[in-house]
Design a protein around this nucleic acid. Structure first.
Lengths: 129, 129
DNA sequence: ATCGAAAATAATAATCATTACTATTTTGAG
DNA sequence: CTCAAAATAGTAATGATTATTATTTTCGAT
């Protein structure tokens, strides 16, 4: 049975009010200002719990730590190959991909994750100079 | 300047002849039969080197170790949420996704990675019993 | 063919992200 | 209120990968 915790509420609130796709470490640094004694393990445990319950999304880039997102509307992410920043991509959810993939596949496909790679606006401008 | 190494050749050959998307550890266990003294670090270094040179692909599932693939034709992968197995998905490369994503995006998108999730044929059959 | 610098290796230590453990504190149903 | 279940802080441990270092291998120049 799930019990309330002030720490978890603060973690969730941080994600709800910051759409920057923070890592566990970033969440930790920030929630620490309200709960100076909070431990990194508590942040991880609650991020996992919230992700399992479907209240937040976990974004796993190929390398480096996972990022978290409280925006539950189906959307895609962009990962900058230069600075590692995670940005939202404004495009329709491509549900048909699962159907196309299923055609020649003998198992069950329930969903897909697509990540886009390239240069974010900032890194792109820097490169141009 | 790149210099030849027997160990690297053996690693590449293993990937060329086994399309099972092995992890570094699996490659290590197998190449060890030809080079009993090879170290895991050598396997990692060469897998990274081959991936950087575009001779093999790295597949990063959200959790667990990376997998490697010598099949360079653009294709998608399926990850079984039950057993973790990585399988090839037989479908066209969806190059248009990058264009769609670019429309409302101010940076540069060079490519995308899509991973499909669900139950592999084997796990799906097991579940049905 | 052999010399020697650059590259690769084996062995091992270190790092990073994350999870596990444990004693203590907090929560909330009865 | 009571008290068991859940959550916590603090810390140790884990798994995957990278870094370090002394030694060996490769290969172009002599």
């Amino acid at each position: 049975m799930l019990k309330y915790s002030r720490q978890r509420e603060s973690i969730k609130k941080y994600l709800d009010t910051h759409r920057t796709h923070p890592t566990a470490e970033i969440v930790y640094q920030n929630v620490k200002q309200e709960f100076p004694n909070i431990s990194l393990g508590t942040v991880y445990r609650n991020l996992n719990l919230l992700a399992e319950r479907g209240e937040i999304l976990r974004i796993s880039p190929g390398n480096g730590p996972d990022h978290y997102d409280a925006d539950l509307t189906p959307h895609y992410h962009f990962l900058c190959t230069e600075c590692g920043q995670v940005l939202d991509i404004d495009m329709e959810h491509q549900a048909q991909l699962d159907d196309i993939a299923m055609k020649q596949f003998d198992g069950i496909i329930t969903n897909h994750v697509t990540q886009f790679f390239g240069l974010c606006p900032k890194c792109n401008n820097t490169k141009m100079n």
